[in-house]
Amino acid sequence: MTTDSVPAGDPRRLLSDTTALARRVRVDQRVTWFALLVLAVVTLVAIPFDWWGLEIRCSGTGDAAACRYWRRGAMFYWPPALLLAYAAIAYGYARAARERGLGTRIRAYALTGATLTAVFTASWLAARLYLYDNPPAEPFPTWVLKLDLLVSPAGTIGVALLVLARLERNLALLAFTLAYLAVVVVPIDFGWGRGWGLETTFLPQQVVNATVLLLGAAAFALARRRQP
């Protein structure tokens, strides 16, 4: 940068300098690893809540057994946990940006996350409350099951991360979030926990979701440290 007036006929360079500065600011405002770490911790802490709060009622025996799951732990844990997580992320972002001498745009992410949490969790829980007393006669179509996974707390985390990727114009986060959502909506089954009992039905997927978020946090932290 010089303090001279810009030479006439150099608009392209001026525009590219402007774009580069804006990109630099956006990069300096990011603490993506922190957001992913908080969400990974929230996902991990959910496991014992889900475990101890799970109520299972089975009818029939053997292959004909039909079981109904009532996830009381998830119901009480997720709404306040996600709201606290978004508050923590907003605080962390604001603090990091202030230390770097910048403001932040994170408030929009925190508000979107909180709103999604309220709407998605309410619909997720309402569906469970209804289905617990009115079990369906036929299995649900696949798209309903996928939609249910998308509005689950794990899916809500992914949808809110899409908003963060948009706000930060962060392509790496967008790619990561799409991969995370694919893992949530198309659950990975390594065959774990088959003999562990019904209480562990949801455990493998929760561990996978948390691990993906933790790996993402580690990767973004590493990328951050390598930046000049």
Binding site: M1, V6, L14, D17, L21, A22, V25, Q29, L102, R105
Partner: peptide, 12 residues
Amino acid sequence: LGILTIAHEARR
């Protein structure tokens, strides 16, 4: 122009 760009992107 740089000052305005940074202030716009950073809010503050």
